[in-house]
Amino acid sequence: MINLNVNQKTYQIDADLNMPLLWAIRDIIGLTGTKYGCGVAQCGACVVHLNGEAVRSCVTKLSRAAGQKIVTIEGLSENNNHPAQLAWNEENVPQCGYCHSGQIMSAAVLLRENPNPSDADIDSAMAGNICRCGTYLRIRKAIHLAAELQRKEAAGK
């Protein structure tokens, strides 16, 4: 038995410690927003936050995740209102939508660490997330917008 803390909730899980976090989140806990895309840390569809970092859950074993603070796309915001989520919707970024949980989780780390990212910063941060539909132009636009929303929000506080 291990404890997994996902989206501020603790789950007691009886699973092999070698099981990747991805499958525990999806198949055992039942949160399906985190996606399987490649299984080898190539595509970024499975990105979750582990202690705030954008880890690839498909290669992160339960042994590493146990007892740590994990946030999935379902827990990123209260009401689909993280600046990245708001911007993604404003710019109509998703097509098929499958990769965007991971894209948004990656963008959220960028926005936290760099409130005013340049195009080059966006390229550096988002290079690990593949989108087969080709929404990259809109991802870039949405991250710039999200940064703006975030700055406004910070100024308002």
């Binding site: 290669v59 992160t60 074993k61 990656s106 963008a107 550096s124 941060a125």
Partner: peptide, 21 residues
């Protein structure tokens, strides 16, 4: 950097399989 930190993919131990981190 950002969402691309080494340890986001490179785990404490080797990931099993070919072409894995």
């Amino acid at each position: 950097v950002y969402a691309m930190k080494c340890s986001n993919c490179h785990q404490p131990t080797n990931t099993p399989g070919l072409h894995t981190p």
